[in-house]
């Protein structure tokens, strides 16, 4: 973490802008933290002041504590700290996720957090931001990760649900409770049957409900329901439900997992699931390349994921790219 840059320093506590004295997604407690989105590897507790997009605020309060000192702003609304102009821009990752743009004396840096380029219908679509320095993730930085169009994936999910229903089975689909779960809920064909959520999902839905996301209301799959209620229904659960006895109440059921890793057969089988859907909230190989290109940045810093591979690839293609060690995780079982 010795790397330095005019606007950004990469320190033990995280990505730091010394001129504005703010950190972006720090992994230790600091005075001022700007949060790209509320996933736990990006939003950590213990800082004195938080700044994030308005939609992230209720989730941050839910996850980091009601009493945290947090300000929410809109996309493209800028604030100024010690001459640094700071603004947030849609990252397309989950509702409220943002790229952080910092501008000082004509120099622009963008820290993109996690992002994807395809418009999922629920999340504000990614907007490319021109900059001199771009910090990008690389979770799926290998050319074997290329997503199908969202519509095709949801056709697959709907068909799977429909077929299970015909066979008198419940359909349990696992995905991050923050982001993926709402994306699924928003996009599945709700005419097929009843939808339930795991407690971890419904509580996030509630926290988000003030933000006019237009999410349909779903019930928590708790003990007030019997097996009969679940027959033919869709249950949205976090990945931690895989292999958990909690699933027994839905028997007979088919278990699905929505994650970018499901693009590979080996990963599908390893998870002990019935079906995998390669539905990711991260950029695939082509999107990463497009995003980097569109920033027009002279300097690219690559964080969490296939960093070494993506850096080598970018350098061979004429970019000035460098690996950046961070404590971000990307898409994993933990949220």
């Amino acid at each position: 973490m010795s790397s330095t840059n005019k606007l950004l320093h990469f320190t033990k506590k995280g990505i730091y802008c010394p001129q504005a004295q703010v950190y972006i997604d720090p992994w230790s407690s600091v005075d001022k933290a700007i949060i790209t989105h509320a996933h736990s590897d990006h939003a950590r507790p213990g800082s004195n002041h938080y700044l994030a997009h308005k939609k992230s605020v209720p989730i941050l309060k839910h996850r980091l504590g009601k009493d945290i000192n947090v300000n929410g702003i809109e996309y493209n609304e800028s604030i100024e700290i010690n001459g640094v102009k700071i603004s947030l821009h849609p990252a397309g990752h989950i509702p409220g996720s943002a790229q952080v743009r910092l501008e000082y004396k004509g120099e622009v840096a963008v820290v993109s957090g996690d992002y994807k380029l395809e418009d999922d219908g629920l999340t504000e679509a990614f907007e490319p931001v021109k900059c001199n320095t771009f910090v990008t993730e690389s979770t799926f930085g290998l050319p074997v990760y290329k997503w199908k169009k969202q519509k095709e994936i949801f056709d697959d999910i709907n068909n799977w649900w429909r077929q299970n229903k015909e066979k008198g089975k419940a359909s349990v689909i696992c995905g991050y409770s923050l982001g993926k779960a709402q994306r699924i809920l928003f996009n599945v064909d709700k005419s097929i049957g009843r939808i339930f959520g795991h407690g971890a999902v419904t509580i996030i839905n509630e926290a988000m409900s003030n933000e006019q996301l237009n999410l349909p209301l779903i019930e928590k799959a708790n003990s007030t329901f019997t097996k009969k209620d679940f027959v033919g229904s869709l249950i949205i659960a976090p990945p931690s439900a895989i292999g958990n006895p909690w699933l027994r109440k839905f028997e007979p059921y088919s278990l699905g997992y929505a994650s970018g890793w499901m693009n590979i057969r080996g990963a599908k089988r390893r998870e002990g699931i019935d079906i995998g859907f390669a539905l990711s909230d991260h950029a695939d190989w082509n999107e990463l390349n497009t995003a980097v290109k569109e920033t027009g940045a002279e300097k690219i810093y690559v964080t969490h994921g296939y960093t070494a591979v993506f850096v080598k690839w970018l350098c061979e293609n004429g970019f000035n790219a460098e690996e950046l060690k961070t404590e971000f995780i990307g898409e994993s079982d933990q949220e």
Partner: peptide, 26 residues
Amino acid sequence: YANIPKWLFDESYNSVGDLAETISLI
């Protein structure tokens, strides 16, 4: 045909673990 360097193919293959599948994906 995929127009990628050999090393990138090899990285992909290491991660996928199956040649036929790697080719189909890239």
